[in-house]
């Protein structure tokens, strides 16, 4: 295909994708439980942002399992600022994300002194520390009982368009989440495809060599960690103003619990680490699958685990690279079929 042809097909698929994303609430409207499905869509958007942030850090070769912890920071901070100080949610969300980024900047230097599994453990435990802090600082956060706020917020008016932070309708909030997540993803996408993205790649593939051609490893790692935690904080803020109830309990159902980080990791790997769209595909598919698999209830982790192992074995590049696997599989299948009739059972 020619270059212009590729650009056109890219633009077309992008437009179709955008149209579907924007039309989804209307498609779901006839459903009895459309409010519930919109709620799920909002959660998907939030998890896509969290997963993409994790993947941005992973571009440098380091895995951060602090996603849930940083979401908690962003969520609690923006919720508290809005409910207790009375700041507009718009500003509160931004301040919450900045606060998250600031904390990330504080821990980044000591954390990046270690590599590999030690870094993973550091970020993982930091998430737990945030969780317990939110529980024990009960004067500030409401403690283990959690923190609820029914704050009627000022609306934002752009011309005739009114966007409200309400708890009544999900559709407005869905559009808000899509716009916010879209902006964040756009920024991440631009970074990944510019020089700084190339630097991340170089750090992941051969950090010593990258350093020897003049890359300041520490500065670049800290930078992407802080940026990614900012976006994770945004995801936490979006979640806080969506559900209006935050809790530090350590049940898997709590979004701020460590399990969320694991889910992000799974979405990232299943979707495809190499592709920018991996987190989108992974998070969307698996969160929808989980909804459809509700009847399976307690067997769901079993099913999900099985699917995951199959994907890791047979599609190590993830679902985003699906097209690459089709010719591979078909040739394998053909070879198998050809072997059968002759009866040769060579290993």
């Amino acid at each position: 295909m020619s270059r212009s042809g590729r650009t056109w097909s890219k633009a077309l698929s992008g437009t179709v994708f955008l149209a579907v994303v924007l039309a989804l609430p209307w498609i779901l409207r006839p459903l009895k439980s459309s409010a519930y499905w919109t709620h799920i869509l909002i959660l998907i958007a939030i998890m896509i942002l969290a997963t993409s942030s994790m993947r941005a850090i992973f571009r440098t070769g380091e895995l951060s399992l602090g996603t849930a912890g940083f979401m908690l920071l962003g969520g609690y901070c923006s919720a508290l600022l809005s409910a207790k100080v009375g700041i507009s949610p718009w500003l509160a969300m931004l301040l919450g994300a900045i606060f998250t980024a600031a904390i990330a900047a504080l821990v980044a230097y000591p954390f990046f002194r270690v590599k590999g599994v030690y870094f993973v453990i550091c970020t993982l435990l930091l998430g737990f520390i945030f969780l317990y802090l939110a529980g024990y600082l009960d004067k500030l956060t409401g403690g283990w009982q959690g923190f609820q706020f029914y704050h009627i917020s000022p609306v934002l008016k752009i011309g005739s368009l009114t966007i409200a932070f309400t708890t009544k309708t999900n559709i407005e909030y869905y559009y808000l989440a899509v716009v916010v997540v879209g902006i964040c993803l756009f920024i991440l996408h631009r970074m990944e495809h510019s020089r700084v993205g190339l630097v991340w790649k170089s750090i992941r593939e051969a950090d010593q060599l990258a350093q020897s051609v003049g890359v300041n490893l520490m500065a670049h790692k800290i930078f992407i960690f802080v940026v990614a935690c900012f976006f994770t904080g945004v995801a936490g803020g979006l979640y806080a103003f969506h559900v209006h109830a935050l809790s530090p309990t350590s049940t898997p159902a709590n979004v701020f619990h460590f399990f969320t980080s694991v889910y992000c990791l799974l979405y990232m790997v299943i979707g495809g680490v190499e592709s920018f769209y991996g987190p989108l595909i992974g998070a969307t598919l698996f969160m929808l699958l989980r909804e459809w698999a509700r009847p399976l209830s307690e067997y769901w982790p079993l099913v999900m685990g099985g699917i995951l192992i199959l994907v890791v074995f047979f599609m190590p590049k993830g679902l985003a690279a699906f097209r690459e696997y089709i010719p591979e599989w078909s040739s394998k299948l053909r070879r198998l079929l050809r072997q059968r009739p002759t009866g040769t059972t060579q290993p």
């Binding site: 920024i187 631009r190 970074m191 510019s194 020089r195 700084v196 190339l198 630097v199 790649k201 170089s202 990258a210 051609v213 003049g214 890359v215």
Partner: peptide, 16 residues
């Protein structure tokens, strides 16, 4: 990648 030191890009161009 080896040309990292000589890209001549400003911060914005480098990042975005």
């Amino acid at each position: 990648i080896g040309m990292h030191l000589h890209t001549g890009l400003r911060t914005f161009g480098f990042l975005f």
